[in-house]
């Protein structure tokens, strides 16, 4: 079901694109080459995984625009920028927006490969985390509104009696709800429940990116 991790190459210069694909293939990586950012975005699906290596200066959609669009895509991937020559403000901007690295086109091969591998690794982590979050989403999604109300109290560490009083229900009913939550989510301890619900941002907390 899942695709294998790939290096997605984007450059308007076909010659460079070919050379880099050739090298990465020989390094044992799977690559897909795109002549423009639009072409890449059009080919990405939720199951796409890997990383993107893009030319920063391209006609049409530039590298930065690609970066923004990629972040909003169904399958966000780490991006590594290549540029004709290092331009500090551009690199700062790229890094601030979470680019893996910012390399010159003629950077040493070792450095390039290291950065690509880091990006792939991060892509994998990202992919897995995304899978896990999707799974958690599914599990928490099965909870009824009443169960969610109960859970909200559980994650802040309240006792059953306190919850019953707060919700003006029977303590026994609270226990039944907690059993249902444990069954649906698959976690028993209230500490674990708290961690998971925080991870998917259930009660106003943004999902934290694993850095």
């Amino acid at each position: 079901m899942n695709e294998s991790p790939r290096v997605h190459l984007v450059d308007d210069d076909e010659s460079f694109l070919n050379a880099l694909s050739r090298l990465l293939r020989l390094e044992g990586l799977e690559t897909r080459a795109f002549i423009s950012a639009t072409a890449l975005l059009g080919s990405l699906g939720p199951a796409s995984r890997g990383c993107v290596v893009a030319d920063l200066e391209m006609p049409g959609m530039t590298g930065f625009e690609l970066q923004e669009r990629l972040a909003a895509a169904p399958a966000p991937m780490p991006i590594l920028f290549l540029t004709g020559y290092g331009d500090i403000p551009a690199s700062v901007r790229a890094m601030r927006h979470g680019a893996i690295d910012f390399l010159e086109k003629r950077a040493p091969k070792e450095e390039l490969m290291r950065s690509i591998r880091v990006a792939l690794e991060r892509g994998d982590q990202e992919f897995e985390r995304r899978g896990r979050l999707r799974d958690l989403d599914q599990r928490f999604g099965r909870l009824t509104p009443r169960e969610l109300e109960v859970l909200q109290h559980v994650v802040v560490g309240r006792m059953n009696k306190e919850i019953a009083a707060a919700l003006s229900i029977n303590e026994r009913t609270v226990k039944l709800h907690r059993t249902a939550i444990t069954r649906k989510v698959g976690v028993h301890s209230s500490a674990q429940l708290a961690t998971l619900s925080k991870e998917i941002g259930l009660f106003g907390n943004e999902p934290t990116l694993t850095a």
Binding site: D13, S15, F16, N18, A19, L20, R22, L23, E57, L82, T83, G84, Y85, E104, K105, R106
Partner: peptide
Amino acid sequence: HELSQPLGAILR
């Protein structure tokens, strides 16, 4: 940039 394209391609 113009130069870096062919030179980059040659290097790779």
